[in-house]
Design a protein around this nucleic acid. Structure first.
Lengths: 236, 236
DNA sequence: CAGAGTAACTTGTATATACAACCAAATTCA
DNA sequence: TGAATTTGGTTGTATATACAAGTTACTCTG
């Protein structure tokens, strides 16, 4: 058996929810019911529910039952990672819609962000990442080609930043800035939302020991996306 | 017994780590050893270890053992911290405008979020934090008074969540969710922005080994606030 | 009718056990 | 010596069971 039983149960529950059979805030099958249905012990069913609670898919309360939490895509804030992996991990369909790939010259703010002289030639690309057909991230990235190693240059257009950076420099780091913005004309069009709708915009500056490799704007529709994570509290 | 046994074990482990007896990357007692030491079953000891792994305090690997995780590795975004300190650090003027402090009963979603029975009395407070006179954060927090230690109860209204939690339990953690929302009437009024303006809303669930201590909504006007930080890139 | 009590159901904690999967070091064998 | 095997310890999954604790709805009683 390749997949553990509690994973099987988790998948079953997710499918019911995604199919709309178990809507938001509705009560899901109880631990005993699931145990009977999957002919497993209650502890195994319980584990499936527990993990889904931790993932924010379900909510439980003693004596009452287990319920479907709000349905919004959520990703871990600790590791802002490849959105394709995340979507696949949720068991949803992933697709990309390339908008354009073209050279652009670094100007003003962009040149500063990347730490290059003005009019340096950058590789610009624009992609829309979709979850089950719905656009969920608009990615606009500027790459400094000089910092991309030669052996990756040929394939680099087809690689996600994660892919080529992880092959390139294991010690690559990124600085993220998160902002709430109102969708402008371009964003609204790409993400198929209304003009002015709130969006979560992440600016990612990726840098290795060589310098800033890329600058990317990742824009998510606020109505469809949130960012979650478990963090230690710090003082000062 | 007021405290469950697995919580007791968690606390024991945390104390050892905080006392420096179990340094970074050192192997901690195995499940069987802990079970013997606390005269409990292996599954109970295992649960304590599992939860500490999820919190990032420990790391496990099959066949090898359980180890103390890095205690640093938290960057500024990871430490969503006291906004007063941040503002002062920027050299700006900080002021607070208290809106209300009142008891409230936990209902439905809130009860689930805090993990308390329905109609539990919570301490609710609402504050507006200002930078140079401009409102920059609306804080709405619900605290479970039972989990606030006695010696902090008198002063707890005047303390920020950070202050009293850091005095209380060094290993307190929080789960954050970040969303882009449109300002409703109440928010717009408090933050002096237009209705529908995009806002960055952080939901913070703070929990210690005792349970969920507080739930807070921190709302920032998108036009005036951003969240930054440096994160390692993760793959898969 | 109002209220207390009870029954049925839920999740929460805990135990004891079994076997699988994995790792490292010791042992055995060629 | 060097490679394969065994052994003991570790975590991972799963079962069956028991009782505690919280919620709801029904029933009984005054």
């Amino acid at each position: 058996m390749p997949v553990p039983k509690f994973v099987e149960i988790k998948q079953y529950i997710c499918q019911r929810i995604e199919a709309g059979e178990w809507p938001e805030y509705s009560q899901v099958a109880s631990e005993n019911q699931l145990a009977q249905q999957f002919s497993c012990s209650r502890m195994t069913a319980r584990r499936a529910l527990t993990e889904l609670c931790e993932q924010g898919v379900l909510m439980r309360s003693q004596g009452l039952g287990t319920f479907v939490a709000e349905l919004k895509s959520q990703s871990s804030m600790l590791a802002i990672r490849n959105i394709a992996d995340e979507i696949k991990e949720r068991g949803h369909g992933y697709s990309v819609q390339p908008i354009c790939v073209e050279p652009r010259l670094a100007q003003a703010k962009l040149a500063v962000a990347l730490g290059v002289p003005n009019d340096t030639q950058l590789a610009y690309s624009e992609l829309v990442h979709c979850e089950d057909g719905y656009p969920i991230q608009l990615e606009q990235r500027f790459v400094n080609p000089e910092l991309v190693p030669d052996y990756l240059k040929q394939s680099f257009e087809s690689l996600t930043p994660h892919e080529y950076l992880s092959r390139h420099a294991p010690l690559t780091q990124a600085t993220h800035t998160i902002e709430a913005i109102a969708a402008d004309q371009a964003i609204a069009e790409r993400l198929q939302i209304a003009l002015g709708e709130p969006c979560l915009q992440i600016s990612r500056r990726t840098w290795s020991s060589q310098g800033v490799v890329s600058f990317a704007l990742l824009t998510h529709p606020g109505s469809r996306y949130r960012l979650g994570g478990q963090l230690p509290l710090h003082e000062s």
